[in-house]
């Protein structure tokens, strides 16, 4: 099982100091949810962890291997351990569903088309989708189905680490429930370490073991899901309970 250590990450976009010394440990086999208001830097942090954005300073270690400014070979070794579900699914429009799911798999394994399709069918079954979906294109699927295919692609290679960016955003409550269950089951089945970016508290309660709150570019609170419900930090309390008044909205009023 893999673990992730994030140390003192800073990231600017022009004058905007988005991440201001983020530090976080995700233990092996643990599911860590990173919560925070829109614009708090959650997605930027995720991109930094994945190596899609270089931080200005700081370090990200995966199983003790530094991934910031790593050589392409090291980064590829790290990426091979990772599966990622993007917010909008990020399925490749030009490829049918079975090719989307088997995209990385087919590059590493020499298999004929029939075997690849069979493998894709088995993985689709794990996310409760039928065989008929195999030959459809992403544009022909609903948002919920696209998320499930995205999840199927993320788990196809049996990764050790899974990242989920807003897995339930834009979905109805029932579909969200299904996605939450699939994400939780897939993570447990693989024994994977997982990082979930979300501001859907139901999703966080269902999926996560631990929660970290990102606010103004820093992790201001960490704890278990149970502790989150009783947290006294005013920002965390307001966010978790969805209160209309509190430091988050006061800040918004001042900015306005």
């Amino acid at each position: 099982m893999s673990h992730i250590q994030i140390r003192d990450i800073h990231k600017h976009f022009g004058a905007n100091h988005v991440l201001r010394g983020v530090a976080l440990d995700v233990a092996a086999g643990q599911t860590m949810a990173i919560i925070g208001a829109s614009g708090s830097g959650k997605s930027v942090l995720l991109k930094v962890i994945l190596g899609l954005l270089p931080p200005d300073s700081g370090s990200v270690e995966v199983d003790g291997v530094e991934s910031v400014n790593a050589s392409r070979r090291t980064r590829e070794q790290i990426l091979r351990k990772i599966g990622m579900l993007f917010q909008g699914g990020a399925l490749f429009d030009s490829l049918p569903i079975w090719e989307n799911i088997m995209f990385r798999y087919r590059q590493n394994v020499d298999m004929d088309k029939a075997a690849l399709r069979k493998e894709a069918k088995d993985i689709l079954a794990q996310v409760l989708l039928e065989e008929r979906v195999l030959d459809l294109y992403p544009a022909e699927l609903s948002g919920g189905m696209q998320k499930r295919v995205g999840l199927a692609r993320a788990i196809a290679d049996k990764p050790e680490i899974l990242f989920f960016d807003e897995p339930t955003s834009g979905l109805d409550p029932i579909t969200s429930g299904v996605i939450n269950r699939l994400v939780r089951d897939a993570t447990k089945r693989l024994g994977a370490t997982a990082v979930v970016i979300s501001h859907d508290m139901n999703s966080v309660r269902e999926i996560a073991d631990r929660v970290a709150m990102l606010h103004e570019g820093k992790i201001i609170w960490q704890g278990t899901v149970k502790q989150m419900g009783r947290a006294r930090h005013p920002v965390v309390r307001q966010f978790v309970h969805g209160l209309a008044s509190g430091p988050l909205t006061e800040q918004y009023e001042i900015k306005k």
Partner: peptide, 16 residues
């Protein structure tokens, strides 16, 4: 479109 829908980032995370 691939850029704005994260498909390029997805390629990268899929070791391509």
């Amino acid at each position: 479109t691939m850029r704005v829908t994260d498909q390029i980032d997805a390629l990268d995370t899929l070791s391509t």
